[in-house]
Structure formats: C-alpha cells, structure tokens
C-alpha cells in the first residue's frame, strides 16, 4: 500500500477510536464500570497523549481523586447523566441536535423530538446503509449516535484504504467531513455551552470540552486535507 494511504488509514483508524470513545461517553446512562474505566490511569494517559495539557484533563484527574468534586463517584455520575440528559428539570440539556439547535425565534417550532432535523439525519445514515437502534437515547440526532456515525465512517474509510480502495475511502472521508461541518461541530459546541451553564457536572463539562476541542481540530484537519493527499501530509493535530 502506498505510504500516503497507509498514513491516512492509520489516521482514520485513530479518528474512529476517538469518535467511538466520545460516542460511548454520551450515548447512554453510564453503568457501574464507566467511572472506573474513565478514571483509570491508562485512560488518563491516553487522553493526555491526545489532548496534551488541556485544562479539562486536570478537571477529570481532580474529579477522579479522592474526595474531589461532586462527580467523584459512580453513583454521582449516573445522577448527573440522568439530570443532564434524561430527566426534565432545571439541569436538563437535550442531547438531540434538532432540539438543541432549534431556532427559538421561530416560536420553538422545531423544538420537538424526532423532528424534521432528526429525520434528515436519519436519511443520511440510511444512505450509508445504517440505522440507529430504536429508543429514546438513540434517536438519529442524539450526540452519541452522531459520534457513532462518525466512528463508522472513519472506520470504513480506514478499511477501504486497507482494502486498496482509496477512492471509496476518500468518499467516506468527505462524507465524514461534511457531516462534521454541517451537523456535529456546531451542535457539540452548543451542547458543551449548555452543560457548562447548568453548573451541574464537572465531569461532563470536562468531557464536552475535550469533545469540542477534538472536533475543532478534526474539522481543521479535514479542511487541510481536502482533495488528493499530498506526500507527507500531516493528518493530525499538533
């Protein structure tokens, strides 16, 4: 395989892992092992390798430390997830793009679950032969589902490079870049701001900041690598 394709394959595979990680962070109510895995030394090292000295990492490390912060135990993180993403109330942040990005100036006409925006996104998934699992947490425009879709595209792109079908890989990359630019990027920033406004969960604030940071960078990367790859193109951040 061409060295350039190899690099792009490695990068897409890596991207898929990061998208998959964040998808799993947001897609559902955290189980008992979530906190343990998230705060494990290996995870922190991995995040450190990815995000360098990002201040959100300190928040996570601090929350993981003994007695530090209100997020600092498995039960608390479940309650925080419930209050943020599941239960109506003062801390509720709808994790759905079509709801959170609704234009309130239009009288909230789009602020409905599974509205037009969600159906448009579902059609994008279907065009790639996918559909989300049924259920309230897995509507097509749920942040976790959109991230999973990105994971899928990146993984398929990597596989296409590995299979010697670079044109197909490029198509998938372009689809990923388009989806990121048109949907996920702005949505994730609005979500992060909304989580921050609640002041409820240092952990989810930090995770959302890491997510937006990654997406900012990835958006730039897609832009910088648009078109046929050049020899030695840097396909990552830093």
């Amino acid at each position: 395989m061409d060295g350039v394709w190899t690099e792009r394959m490695e990068m897409d595979r890596a991207r898929a892992e990061v998208y998959g990680f964040f998808s799993r962070v947001f897609v559902g109510r955290p189980d008992g092992a979530f906190w343990e895995q998230l705060t494990a030394e290996d995870t922190m090292d991995a995040l450190g390798a990815l995000f360098g000295d990002h201040p959100a990492l300190d928040v996570l490390r601090s929350a993981a430390g003994e007695g530090a912060g209100k997020s600092g135990n498995p039960e608390a993180i479940q309650v925080e997830y419930d209050n943020l993403f599941l239960v109506p109330g003062p801390y509720h942040v709808p994790p759905y793009e079509s709801v959170l990005m609704a234009d309130e100036k239009a009288g909230g006409r789009r602020a409905t679950l599974f509205g037009k925006g969600a159906q448009e996104i579902a059609r994008i998934y279907e065009a790639h032969g996918l559909e989300p699992w049924e259920g309230i947490e897995n509507f097509p425009d749920h942040i976790g589902v959109e991230l999973a879709f990105m994971e899928h595209l990146c993984r398929r792109a990597a596989e296409s490079y590995a299979s010697g079908v670079p044109d197909r890989a490029r198509d998938l990359e372009e689809a990923a870049a388009r989806f990121l630019g048109e949907h996920l990027h702005a949505f994730s920033h609005r979500l992060a701001s909304a989580i921050l406004e609640t002041g409820l969960s240092p952990t989810y604030e930090a995770l959302a900041q890491l997510l937006t940071s990654f997406l900012d960078d990835d958006l730039n990367q897609w832009a910088s690598t648009a078109g046929p790859p050049e020899d030695g193109a840097r396909a990552c951040c830093g």
Binding site: G20, L38, A49, L50
Partner: peptide, 22 residues
C-alpha cells in the same frame, strides 16, 4: 488541542477498549 501525530495515534488506539458498549 495540542499533540503530535504520533501521540494522537498512540492515544487514540489506547482508547479503543475504554468504555466498551454495544
């Protein structure tokens, strides 16, 4: 976000088994 390609690949692959879900 400040990291190198090498670190990105390393960190990303290390995340592959974290927070396993269906």
């Amino acid at each position: 976000m400040s990291t190198t390609r090498r670190n990105f690949l390393k960190g990303a692959l290390a995340l592959s088994g974290v927070l396993t879900s269906a």
